[in-house]
């Protein structure tokens, strides 16, 4: 059976974030390279129809950091999911290069796993790590994101492939889910079908909510930042890990809804959510131990390495003067 492949997060850093970091570095952080909290957000996967070829182009599985990333009490924009992470800014390029990335990464992954096992808290399932070095004189910013995701051994498999959610659930059900979701927006949620009527709840209520509900009427769902038909987005990995860790007896097969209709479809579009039946073999790992995690973002060449944003063309006064009319 084909292995489920998840579409990794891609970071999208708004230039305003670098401007904010510049100010923060000069006025607040100065020489401190302590870890500070940071926020980001993602939305449901979007695709656009190319009018010239008729193909749908899936826009990336993006997670975006903007000017408000350092604001306490960060509010994700409407129709978006807020994510918290940690940010470490290094003072020199050498420090940045020599940073113990594995330790930083494991620290975040441990924290995530602990919140799952100890507190059954799903709110840290989307945590991320950002390390950076800001070359303020040259307006260059080196950065590397990591989105830790727990590796499941054996891997999840999907036998009958992903299909449109509309084929599995009726359009009316999706509409009902959409209405309830708008009232209770959550990156991860549960759906049960009772008397042909869908009801949704939060993921931490798994036990109560699915008690006395036949497995064929249980669905786990998440806001899916991917728009690719065959690849669910990155957040599903940690959701599955969470469910396996806490409810291993009932989760060897899962009905998964990739919710991509955070904005309900208009007349001209159709439901974009996907549905799949996922299966997993017997666990090999020891119960309760933290599975290994992956998730460093690849650079432009597709290698594990940092990225760079060069804002000189948009920030350097002399260059701006050159192109000004």
């Amino acid at each position: 059976m084909p292995i489920v492949q998840f579409s990794p997060f891609s970071s999208l850093v708004q230039p305003a974030f670098w401007h904010e970091l510049t100010t923060l570095k000069i006025d607040v952080l100065r020489l401190s390279d302590d870890v500070i909290p940071i926020s980001a957000s993602y939305t449901a996967g979007r695709s656009i129809k190319d009018r010239e070829t008729g193909n749908d182009i899936a826009l990336g599985c993006n997670i975006s950091v903007g000017a408000d990333a350092f604001v306490k009490g960060f509010q994700a924009p409407s129709h978006s999911v807020g994510v918290t992470g940690i940010f470490k800014n290094f003072n020199t390029i050498e420090d940045f290069k020599q940073a113990d990335k594995t330790a930083l990464f494991n620290q975040v992954a441990d924290e995530m796993w602990e919140s799952v096992i100890k507190h059954k808290d799903p709110s840290l399932l989307n945590r991320f790590l950002l390390i950076a070095f800001a070359d303020l004189k040259k307006y260059k910013y080196f950065y590397w994101f990591a989105f830790p995701a727990f590796v499941s051994k054996p891997a999840w498999e999907i036998s009958s492939g992903w299909k449109s959610a509309e084929e599995e659930l009726s359009s009316e059900s999706l509409k009902a889910i959409s209405t309830q979701f708008a009232a209770l927006p959550n990156p991860f949620f549960l759906v049960r079908i009772v008397n042909n009527q869908p009801e949704i709840s939060t993921i931490d209520k798994y036990q109560e909510f699915f008690a006395n509900v036949p497995p064929s009427s249980q669905i786990v769902a998440f806001v899916d930042p991917s728009a690719l038909p065959e690849n669910p987005g990155w957040p599903l990995r940690n959701l599955l890990a969470y469910l396996r860790a806490l409810h291993s007896s009932t989760t060897s097969t899962l009905r998964v809804l990739c919710w991509r209709d955070v904005e309900p479809p208009t007349n001209s579009s159709s439901w974009k959510s996907r549905f799949g039946l996922l299966e997993i073999g017997l666990d090999q790992g020891e119960a309760g131990a933290r599975p290994s995690a992956v998730g460093w973002e690849k650079n432009v060449q597709g290698k594990l390495g940092p990225r760079m944003a060069d804002l000189a063309p948009m920030m350097d006064p002399t260059r701006l003067a050159d192109q000004a009319v």
């Binding site: 292995i3 492949q5 998840f6 590796v151 499941s152 891997a155 690849n231 992956v294 998730g295 594990l304």
Partner: peptide, 12 residues
């Protein structure tokens, strides 16, 4: 740092 993490079959 290609050795930072192993290849992952479940990454698209």
């Amino acid at each position: 740092e290609e050795d930072l993490e192993d290849g992952d079959e479940a990454t698209a």
